[in-house]
Simulated assay, not measured.
Amino acid sequence: MRVGQLVGKFSPNFDDAHVHSFKTAVDPHSEIYSSEIPPSLAFDTLHAVKEFIELPQGTVHSKEATQFHGIAEPHLSTTVEIFVADKSVRKGKQNFTLEYRAFSGEAHVLTAYKSFVIPGVSTEAEKNPIAFDFGLFGNKLDATHTYALNDTKFQVTQELLDSFGEVTATDGPIHSDPEIATPQFGGTILQGMYLFELTSQRMSCLSSTERWLQSGKIAAKFVGSSITGETVSIATAMRNIDEDSQRIHCSFEARTDSGRTVFVAEAEGPLDSKLILEKAK
């Protein structure tokens, strides 16, 4: 792979059946997605990567960043173009980032960056990876004006891992096979992209799902893992509320019930200012 290379063009299965399966896995009570607004992150799965690249066993999905440009339509033809955005070596580990450009018909509806760490030790010269985070982690936040929202809590179950893994192509043994995962990790591991999806849902609630999927952006780092049987809490802090532009910057941190941080994210999106007081209670 070389930086800038077009890896391939993938036609994802984004029909009504696939959208329904994704919704069932991430929004079982239809609290976020309506029949008119499908979940755009159903585009952003590993299906496209696995179509063109063989990821070695033990490859770690370390970071994810997504910017939404518009609503995807299941009845239109869909295409995901994949490019090599970066290759690097850090602390003896090979890193690479892929850029996704997702199209619904001719409309560009989503741009995503997926970063991976390859197992093993590299002898190549050290080179720090580029930060594909839309500047969100570099945004200086105003800690004096922070509103904490109620935590999002859920329990990690094998049923959850299986349903999400099947629809997103993240159903490898560490997520689906307790006999393989338990000796090494203590249980099967929750997919990081499930936390990413819940964070996206939380941002949509600050205005509307439609507005969020037209202009929101989020960047996340997967810094740990949670396993079956654990309860995970996602804390949300609203900061840098811009009343003039009706935009907001939020920070997220997911922790297990044992206190381990497994996920951190920054997001910026549209804001309905009337919701500030209600959501901050």
Rank of each mutant, 00 (worst) to 15 (best):
G58E: 09
P74F: 02
T157K: 08
G70S: 08
V80W: 00
S226R: 01
A254D: 01
Q155W: 10
R90D: 10
I189D: 03
A235V: 07
S176F: 10
I180V: 15
I189A: 04
Q155C: 10
A17Y: 14
P119F: 06
T152G: 03
A25G: 00
R90N: 12
N13G: 05
E51I: 08
I174Y: 04
V19H: 01
G165V: 03
T144M: 06
V49I: 15
P28M: 07
E54G: 12
F43T: 00
T188G: 04
H20V: 09
T146G: 07
G187H: 07
F137L: 06
E166W: 09
M193P: 02
K274F: 10
I71C: 02
E64L: 08
G165Y: 05
P173D: 11
K279T: 13
G224V: 05
G229H: 13
F116D: 03
G192Y: 07
I248L: 14
L195C: 07
S35T: 14
A25M: 09
F132H: 15
S122A: 11
L76E: 11
S233D: 04
E106C: 04
A42K: 00
L55Q: 03
P74M: 05
L141K: 09
L213D: 03
S122W: 06
E179W: 06
F103V: 03
T157C: 10
G70Q: 02
G135N: 08
N150E: 15
D242T: 08
G70A: 11
N240Q: 08
H47T: 06
H47K: 09
T66R: 05
V121Y: 15
H20F: 12
G186M: 11
R90M: 14
E230Q: 15
I130G: 00
N139F: 13
D44W: 04
L6F: 08
S215T: 14
H69L: 12
L213S: 03
K9T: 14
V84N: 01
T199W: 02
N240I: 07
S104C: 04
S21N: 13
K281H: 14
K217M: 12
S207R: 03
H29R: 15
D15R: 10
I53N: 00
G172A: 10
G216M: 02
C250R: 00
V26P: 00
F96S: 08
A102E: 02
I218R: 02
A235N: 13
H75I: 09
N139R: 15
K221W: 13
T146C: 12
R239E: 15
D244G: 07
S35F: 11
V26A: 04
Q94I: 13
D272I: 06
I218P: 01
T45V: 06
Q201Y: 04
S208G: 02
K221Y: 13
V264I: 15
A65G: 03
T182H: 04
V3N: 09
C205L: 15
L275Y: 01
T228E: 11
K63G: 06
